[in-house]
Amino acid sequence: MDEEYDVIVLGTGLTECILSGIMSVNGKKVLHMDRNPYYGGESSSITPLEELYKRFQLLEGPPESMGRGRDWNVDLIPKFLMANGQLVKMLLYTEVTRYLDFKVVEGSFVYKGGKIYKVPSTETEALASNLMGMFEKRRFRKFLVFVANFDENDPKTFEGVDPQTTSMRDVYRKFDLGQDVIDFTGHALALYRTDDYLDQPCLETVNRIKLYSESLARYGKSPYLYPLYGLGELPQGFARLSAIYGGTYMLNKPVDDIIMENGKVVGVKSEGEVARCKQLICDPSYIPDRVRKAGQVIRIICILSHPIKNTNDANSCQIIIPQNQVNRKSDIYVCMISYAHNVAAQGKYIAIASTTVETTDPEKEVEPALELLEPIDQKFVAISDLYEPIDDGCESQVFCSCSYDATTHFETTCNDIKDIYKRMAGTAFDFENMKRKQNDVFGEAEQ
């Protein structure tokens, strides 16, 4: 370990593993360490099931009705991949897709007046949907046509809207959309967690709705994908990429100290040895004095023996409960997957309800979601602090990732990755940087 590296990475969460992969592909010498004996950090999948019970201090362990412990891979952080989103792009560019198998999530649902409705995925579904009345549908269709044709580089498509100054509230007004449709559009399509976006320039919202539609167009059922064997497969896929390009991995490796000289990182000390480096990437748990708390998320993992009611017996789905429907500031989400994804025993389902904490009784906040899941065989409640770095790391060369937020997709995580890359490399992130180099010394032969 007593060696000189360009970059040392602490923690094998998804953000850290993707950055480690990119740095290795770009010719950097990388050492990647984790104090845990497993990959994934906060974003790991726990197996066998006995391990999950232990982690949540349920000492009696799983009953026999849960089947074989080894058949379970339970995500600690519930997220899906947008089919046309940035993480899929990263997987394709790096060819990490060859280590993973994905399934399309069967449906996306939205909560309205105590019931759940399928988010329409085709024009026919939209016309048949009970989510809105006849005239509302016509106006909504006009709005969707506007979004589909919108091109930020072609003012002819703006229809009198200025993407940089017109607020989204004004765009909704222009198409005369009612409150329910606005809730549905902002939260189930643009996937905002709160209503803060309404008074911001509309460009980002329009682009988010386009991303949803384009992702949906790829597979038809929903815009989301999920990897077989759980999300823990993602960091491992990128760790393989890093290793192929010469990255060194050490799990179960305690970090005793991060060594600084004149305010700059110069190395990491572990078990009496020092590895030197020019730059350091880590998750917040490794540098508690360089991060601040930015809120909390509650996630309740529920094991069920039945599909969720009114989802047409889907073996995977997402449910969004827009905040307006339950008098909150932030949406509540449910991600459900099952034995069909090799993450649970035969006939079992895993539904994870999550939201940003707003009160001193977080469990009560998630109740509307839990009511949709009854009866629940077993619950595991996790309340996590969200951390963000206190500075950009440019001076110390210590670059810290943000905690995983309450969103049900990876777009915010990818933004964090691109942002850290830019601060480390001094140049904007470009997907081309992730391409495997042809015929290089570490390149794998085609399968």
Rank of each mutant, 00 (worst) to 15 (best):
Y286C: 04
Q318K: 00
E367L: 12
Y333D: 06
T356A: 10
E159G: 10
D405H: 05
K89C: 15
G393E: 11
L131Q: 06
N26M: 04
G426A: 04
K112T: 05
N84G: 15
R299C: 01
S108V: 09
F442L: 09
T413S: 03
N252S: 10
R55A: 11
I281N: 14
Q447R: 12
L31I: 03
F146C: 11
Y349M: 04
E106Y: 09
R173L: 10
G13V: 00
V334G: 02
V266E: 10
R436D: 15
D2R: 05
K28T: 10
N149I: 06
R35S: 01
M132R: 06
R70C: 14
M336V: 09
P163L: 11
N262T: 03
Y117S: 06
E152Q: 14
I22F: 14
V9T: 04
G114R: 02
Y212H: 10
P362A: 09
G426N: 15
T165Y: 14
Y219D: 06
Q378Y: 14
F175V: 03
N433T: 12
Q438P: 10
T194A: 09
D6F: 02
Q325P: 07
N433R: 02
G133S: 08
K210D: 12
C202Y: 09
D313C: 11
V366A: 10
F150H: 11
N415G: 06
C394P: 02
H32Y: 01
S108M: 11
E365A: 03
T408I: 06
N153C: 09
L58I: 10
D361N: 09
T360M: 10
K293Q: 01
A369S: 05
C394W: 06
V291M: 05
K422P: 10
R139H: 08
V381E: 02
F135L: 11
F431V: 05
V357I: 02
S108K: 07
V161L: 12
D392I: 12
V381M: 09
I259D: 14
E3G: 10
E51Q: 04
T360L: 15
K309S: 13
D196G: 09
I77K: 15
P62A: 12
E42K: 07
N130V: 06
L14R: 02
R138N: 13
E16K: 01
T412C: 15
R240D: 12
D34V: 04
A148I: 14
P375S: 05
A369G: 10
L373T: 03
I319L: 09
K435T: 09
D180C: 08
V25L: 09
K269H: 06
L251S: 04
S215H: 15
L280A: 09
A369T: 06
E204D: 03
A128V: 11
E371D: 06
L304H: 00
A344K: 14
S44H: 05
Y421L: 06
V206S: 02
